[in-house]
Design a protein around this nucleic acid. Structure first.
Length: 484
RNA sequence: GGCGCCAUAGCCAAGUGGUAAGGCGACGGUCUGCAAAACCGUUACGCACCGGUUCAAAUCCGGUUGGCGCCUCCA
């Protein structure tokens, strides 16, 4: 089955056909680096990370570009507020972004260009747009003339004249049309600036993505992505700029991810109802956050709640507990011989995975499909299945390998199980304000009581731990504990 | 006012024409000194509502209600 992607440009699922067979060029709008990232950013970059991984998995040669917007009104404002240089602010938040993405398992893009390092390209692009009659100089500013570009608003499917009624933007006197937008802005005192044919200034928002995408991916490329909120005006304006300059189609497939909601409302800075990635990952494991993001199709809104995160974390725990047991069972490496106990399940796994992902990257479906294999891995690795050991090992290997293969495309289940499990427990211990030492002491006391067959005393200790939210588990390898 | 999206069990959620995946929770069971974990079983005669198309609809069409988003910086 061929890959289908929902294309905002056509408003339907289109069969994906790259410009160059076997190769894909993809650009995703990166962050404006003026603050810590919130979980909306997490969703966007996780979504495209999965897309990125899947395209490569499917054997397509991918060039993935994700920029950093490091010149912008908000960065300037922020820098002024805290009395720092804009570059100090932007560099710091680039590092914070990298830290967050790393924790979430979001791989770096192949190219991560910064606006400040592409001013010449931007100036050249603006010059070209002016030359072609799609932009005009007004004082030290340069504006794109939306009326000169008949295809304007093709992505959002709106009408220019209908938009004017709702426009709440203050109209700059120098604009020929209220909808015209800045390509270049004259710098005010104290603002960063670069020389240009129009005087000292800086790029407007939008133009950087047009300049950097064409530099690294060409005038026309395959996929351009970002959050739904970027459709208008950002992506609409990118199309106008790029197509006005090149005279060619800009992008074939536009992919947009849905929002993260809080209490069914869009999470956003202006509403003040946002959580940073850092806040959430202090309470829940980063992989739980990632898993949560994948439980809903990337285009649908997803509602953030502690309960959902807890559920996601529970599944992550379950998966790693299972993998841990599988690893223990297969300590000797790939088993020789043995008979797979469930060939249809093992053999159907990857085809089902590909079918789901080929259908507009339906990772949520994949997660559901993973339940049965994980269940079987658990059953077999418990050692109590009653099946011949060789067959068990054979199946664990065959099935486990495929489960991890799928996990590696979704960016889950690829870390060291014991490490993740203890990281999760650490968070719960902290959340409940527990003292691990005290717990160990109690468990030791209980062990002694059990040894002496003083079960009344042992259960008393268990109850005490239980009231603290600690569950005690007696296993052949000793007594372990977990936080509920 | 314009454009668009969504509505599936207690909760989350997949499913775009063929007779409702999966998860969480709950209940019952196996295992266990007792538990926990794990495993097994049960948990939507119905997919907001009304009408239509069809042999067949959660899925297509029309309408109603409710919720959300964009039109302004925003992933």
């Amino acid at each position: 089955m061929a890959l289908k992607v929902f294309n905002t440009l056509t408003n339907r699922k289109d069969e994906f056909a790259p410009i160059e067979p076997g190769k894909v060029r993809m650009y995703v709008c990166g962050v404006t680096v003026y603050d810590m990232c919130h979980i909306g950013h997490a969703r966007a970059y996780i979504s495209f990370d999965v897309i990125q991984r899947y395209l490569r998995y499917a054997g397509l040669g991918l060039t993935y570009v994700r920029n950093y917007t490091d010149v912008d009104d908000k960065i300037i404002k922020r820098a002024a507020e805290i009395g720092e240089q804009t570059t100090v602010v932007s560099e710091r938040f680039i590092r914070e972004f990298e830290t967050d993405m790393d924790a979430l398992g979001v791989a770096k893009a192949d190219i991560e260009p910064k606006v400040t390092e592409h001013i010449p390209e931007i100036v050249a692009l603006i010059g070209k747009i002016i030359e072609r009659g799609h932009a005009y100089v007004a004082g030290g500013d340069v504006y794109f003339s939306v009326r000169s570009f008949p295809r304007y608003l093709q992505l959002s499917g709106r009408q220019l004249d209908e938009m004017k009624a709702g426009a709440r933007v203050e109209v700059d006197e120098r604009k020929q049309d209220p909808m015209d937008f800045a390509l270049w802005k004259e710098s005010k005192p104290g603002e960063p600036w670069w020389d240009s044919p129009w005087g000292r200034g800086r790029p407007g928002w939008h133009i950087e993505c047009s300049a950097m995408s064409s530099k690294y991916l060409g005038d026309t490329f395959d996929i351009h992505g970002g959050g739904k909120d970027l459709i208008f005006p950002h992506h609409e304006n990118e199309i106008a700029q790029s197509e006005a300059a090149s005279g060619k189609k800009f992008v074939n497939y536009w992919i947009h991810n849905g929002f993260v909601n809080i209490n069914e409302e869009k999470m956003s800075k202006s509403l003040g109802n946002f959580f940073t990635i850092r806040e959430v990952t202090a309470r829940f494991h980063p992989e739980a956050l990632r898993y949560f993001m994948l439980t809903t199709h990337y285009r649908s809104p997803i509602n953030f709640s502690d309960q959902s995160l807890e559920e996601a974390q529970k599944r992550v725990e379950y998966a790693y507990q299972t993998l841990d047991a599988v690893n223990t069972m297969l300590a000797g490496g790939e088993p020789k011989g043995g008979k797979n106990v469930n060939p249809p399940l093992v053999e159907g796994l990857i085809p089902a995975f590909r079918e789901a992902m080929d259908d507009d990257f339906n990772a949520a479906k994949v997660l559901g499909d993973l339940s049965e294999p994980l269940r079987l891995l658990n059953e077999l690795s418990s050692g109590k299945s009653g099946k011949p050991k060789d067959d068990v090992k054979r199946t664990l290997w065959d099935l486990g390998t495929k489960v991890v293969e799928i996990g590696s495309v979704l960016g889950i289940m690829t870390r060291d199980p014991a490490t993740v499990l203890s990281e999760i427990r650490d968070r719960k211990v902290k959340a409940k304000n527990l003292d691990p030492e005290k717990i160990e002491t109690l468990i030791a006391a209980r062990a002694e009581a059990r040894k002496a067959k003083d079960f009344a005393r042992a259960d008393q200790v268990r109850d005490e731990l239980k009231s603290m939210g600690v569950a005690v588990m007696d296993t052949p390898k000793g007594t372990a504990w977990r936080v509920d």
